[in-house]
Simulated assay, not measured.
Amino acid sequence: MHKTIMAKMVLWLVFCLPLLANAHQTNTPELKKSTQGPNLASVNAAVALAGSNDLVFGKNSDRSVPIASITKVMTALVVLESGAPLNEWLVFRKRHTPAAANAYSRIRIGSKMRRADVLRIALMSSENFAAYTLARSHPGGFDAFIDAMNARAKTLGMVGTRFVDPTGLSAENVSTAGDLVRLVNAAAEYPEIREYSTTGYFRGHFRNPRYSLSFGNTNALVHRNSWGVGLSKTGYLSEAGRCLVMISEMNGKQVVTVLLDSLGTRSPMGDAGRIKRWLDTGDQGQVAKAARQYAQEKNAAYNAVVHSTTAALK
């Protein structure tokens, strides 16, 4: 079961050997703490109070794993910190390099949209062509944008993180749940990221030629007032599983939740609910058998590669 996913996982694990070797030596106390927390379908997770990088709960939170479109949170941070004008019209040009995965888009090549709206649809609807265009339109160019992503990760202390593209279509974009808490806290300082990432629906207007497209948020929880979602980003690749980062209201507090690699489409939402109940009542909750089996398989594959890597380094 899941043999194709396991094979792909081994490939990216081999690519990330330096990060894995470093991660394997850290955070042992946190793994012990995770056994007292909620039961989650996600293989890797982290929970912290908004504004703090200290974890309230962690599950494999030091593992460097593919993060899919969670990448776009860093893309947004680099865009805003570049100082590029948000009202500038950007051109959606044909990709200069092939996408690492399916990059289908409804946006027409050659059309234009304001940078602010390009950023909005990249965040709330996870539009990959939009994220690519933001990087391509960076004042220093595409390669400089990727360098800026990695440089910003370094300044944030994201030691288990590496980026190779701005969309998350590449499984070589890796991070840890703990690192992503740092990223979410940094991104939350920008009202544009909070607003754009939690926009429920948006009608985007293009020109050259003139047309419009409707976009919806990929996180169903932003439509529920009871969650008070203040920042949100979802992600999915076969190598990364279902992923979610967000800031939401839990037990009267603003909480950062990072959920990486679960099996089902709605598993991250279910995990968020279990975390919310755990913070409120201490109830650890339960997950489905299929989700537990998926996590066991991913853990086994990860541990096998880390073991062989550690042995090779001795």
Rank of each mutant, 00 (worst) to 15 (best):
H96S: 10
H96M: 08
E195G: 12
L77S: 01
I107H: 14
G83F: 10
R106Q: 11
E189H: 06
T176C: 13
R182P: 03
T198G: 03
Y190F: 15
G110P: 11
A103K: 02
L156S: 00
G83T: 10
L77E: 00
G141Y: 07
R95W: 00
V91M: 13
I193V: 10
G157S: 00
G160Q: 12
P139E: 09
S170E: 09
I109K: 06
A135I: 07
N173P: 13
F92T: 01
A116P: 04
E195T: 15
G140P: 09
G140C: 06
L86A: 13
F163W: 02
A151E: 14
E88W: 02
P85F: 07
P191F: 04
L77A: 10
I109L: 05
S170G: 06
P139Q: 07
M149C: 04
R114Y: 05
M124C: 12
A101M: 10
L134M: 00
A122R: 04
M124Y: 10
V174Q: 02
E127V: 06
T161W: 00
A187R: 05
A84L: 13
T97N: 11
L119K: 06
G140Y: 04
S105Y: 11
L183S: 01
L183W: 02
H96L: 10
F92M: 03
G141V: 08
K154M: 12
N173W: 02
D117W: 06
N173C: 12
M149E: 14
V174W: 04
V118N: 04
E81N: 14
S82C: 06
